[in-house]
Structure formats: structure tokens, C-alpha cells
């Protein structure tokens, strides 16, 4: 009899216990059933706003300032003559700012051709993770001004027009993050040259770029970028033939920095240069080492952090 009561008690206790976990699962189900539907977007398709030379679909966050230093060294194939390119380096400085989640603007200067540029980047579509939109689409538009002294013209009555110095780039950046590791991007591009060397060239160079990344670890990735020109392939620069640009990179992030190193046949750092005016070629091993360093600063705090005053600064 005692045994039976004990058994019954144990049985009923264990029943009670299991009923307890069931009840919690029911509570959880109750929470989940009533939960508002939230769209889930892919994030961090690329680590940086630049793939290698060109732009990625990524925009900066609201109120974020990005200071970038890009370096492209000289032609590595000249060996010790220029210390494998290190003796001849071109730099580009950029200041980019995120006005909001979908609008980033930036200005830059590069020493090659003494060029200043400004760009605007608009995120038009965001990739969703559970069905829906399969891609992220960003528009990139830039204008660049070459500021070298005007060349001496054969006819002294002719004037070197200011408009000769202008270049415009329009791109659609179409990217998809396939999984944690792999993201790919297509970049249909048109670069407008206000002045081309000869009337046989079109003022508009059309190109299709393709690029992507494969993450090696959580914080590092291999990247690649190729721009294929659809016209103006016979462009020359100072009498030299031009080649399509292919770049191979490795990127690593540490806290607030993203560090990218690359090997590329392009030394130019604005779109008009690296898309259609690259005079070095992989087949001749005329390659350039380079790096991009990015450091971001939060200028305007997000709404929910506006009141915080106690934060540590660098």
C-alpha cells in the first residue's frame, strides 16, 4: 500500500513537472503567435563600402563618417629599380558620410592626375533573408575633376575648356549574399568622358563589372573584382594601350578598421581611370600592390543613445 502511494506521488510529481515545461512551451508559443511580422534583411554583404577599387553595395550607417586612405604602389615588375613599386605610390584620401541608412555621400582626392571627386550612393533595394527581395541594389554616381595644369595646345588661339576636365560615372551595384561566406556583385557601369582622345571613341564607356568575396574566417575574406569593357577597348593613354582591370584582394577587420590589401593591374583610383584607362596588364606582370584602410567615426549617435554622456572616447 505504502509503495503504491509513493509510486502515485512520484508519478503525479513527474506528470506535474512535464506539465510545467509544456506550459512554458505554451507560453512561448503564445508569444510567438502574436509576434508582429518583422522583415529580416541580409546585412554585411561586404565588409566595406569598397569592394577593392570600385564600390560595393554597402552604405554607411546614419551619422557615420568614414575616413579612407588608399594606396597603389608602382609597377612591381620593375623589380629593384623602384623597389617593387614601393618607391612610386599614389594615394587617395576619402571622406564619406552616411546621411541616413540609404544615402551616403563622399569626397576624395587622388594624386594621380590630381583629381578631385565627389559621389553619391543610394541604396534602392535590400535583400531579404526569408523570401522576398533576392538582391541588394545600390546606385552609385560620381563626378571627377582633373586639376592638372592645362596642356599647351598647338594652336594658341584655342582654349583648354574647363569641361574637358570632367568625368562622370554611373553604376548600378547589384549584389547578393548567398550565405555567410559568399557574396557576389554585378556592376553595370557607364563612364562619361567629356573629352576623348579621338573622334573614333565614344564619350561613354560601357562596362560590366563582376566581383565578390569569400570569407576565410569571421573577420577576413578574399575578394576579387573585374571590369569588362563593352566598348572603347582601344583607348590609349599617352600612346599606351589599355587593359581591363582585374584586382585580387584580402581584407581583414579589427574593431573599427577594415584593412584591405590587393594586387591589381590598375594604379588609378577613380572610376574613369581604373575602368577604362588602365595601361598595365596581368599578362605582362605589370602589377601593383596596394591597400585601403578605413576608419569609421560615429558623428551623430543613434536616437536611443542621444542622452548617454558617460561614454569613453578614443
Amino acid at each position: 500500500m505504502m509503495m503504491n502511494i509513493r509510486k502515485a506521488v512520484v508519478l503525479s510529481l513527474s506528470l506535474l513537472a512535464s506539465a510545467g515545461t509544456f506550459a512554458q512551451d505554451n507560453l512561448m508559443a503564445e508569444l510567438e503567435n502574436g509576434a508582429p511580422k518583422q522583415k529580416d534583411y541580409a546585412f554585411a554583404t561586404f565588409k566595406s563600402t569598397r569592394l577593392i577599387d570600385g564600390s560595393s553595395v554597402e552604405c554607411l550607417g546614419t551619422g557615420v563618417l568614414d575616413f579612407r586612405i588608399s594606396h597603389r604602389f608602382g609597377d612591381i615588375s620593375q623589380g629593384l629599380d623602384n623597389f617593387f613599386g614601393v618607391d612610386v605610390a599614389y594615394t587617395k584620401l576619402n571622406l564619406d558620410y552616411g546621411i541616413n541608412r540609404w544615402l551616403t555621400v563622399g569626397i576624395g582626392h587622388t594624386g594621380l592626375n590630381k583629381e578631385d571627386d565627389g559621389f553619391v550612393k543610394i541604396k534602392l533595394l535590400r535583400q531579404e533573408t526569408k523570401g522576398g527581395m533576392p538582391i541588394t541594389l545600390t546606385y552609385f554616381g560620381s563626378a571627377a575633376i582633373e586639376t592638372l595644369p592645362a596642356p599647351t595646345l598647338p594652336d594658341s588661339t584655342q582654349k583648354w575648356l574647363f569641361s574637358n576636365r570632367l568625368f562622370f560615372t554611373n553604376q548600378l551595384l547589384i549584389a547578393r549574399k548567398f550565405n555567410d561566406r559568399i557574396s557576389l556583385q554585378l556592376m553595370p557601369t557607364v563612364v562619361h568622358y567629356n573629352l576623348v582622345d579621338s573622334s573614333k571613341y565614344s564619350n561613354n564607356t560601357f562596362a560590366l563589372g563582376i566581383g565578390g568575396r569569400v570569407k576565410l574566417t569571421k573577420r577576413s575574406a578574399i575578394t576579387a573584382e573585374y571590369y569588362y569593357r563593352l566598348n572603347n577597348t582601344s583607348f590609349t593613354v599617352n600612346g599606351l594601350p589599355t587593359y581591363n582591370t582585374f584586382s585580387l584582394g584580402y581584407e581583414i577587420e579589427t574593431g573599427g578598421h577594415v584593412f584591405q590589401i590587393m594586387v591589381t593591374n590598375a594604379q588609378g583610383l577613380t572610376e574613369r581611370m581604373f575602368i577604362a584607362q588602365t595601361t598595365d596588364s596581368w599578362s605582362k606582370q605589370q602589377l601593383h600592390l596596394g591597400f585601403n584602410v578605413s576608419r569609421v567615426f560615429t558623428i551623430i549617435k543613434p536616437e536611443s543613445y542621444k542622452d548617454d554622456k558617460d561614454d569613453k572616447k578614443w
Binding site: 557615420v64 577587420e253 573599427g256 543613445y305
Partner: peptide
């Protein structure tokens, strides 16, 4: 939500 967008990205991604 984070004060720094990059921190939010690292929090989620890494």
C-alpha cells in the same frame, strides 16, 4: 541596437 553601427554589425555577424 548599438551606438556604433559597426559594432552592431560585428555583434550580429561575428
Amino acid at each position: 541596437k548599438f551606438e556604433k553601427q559597426l559594432m552592431e554589425e560585428h555583434f550580429n555577424e561575428n
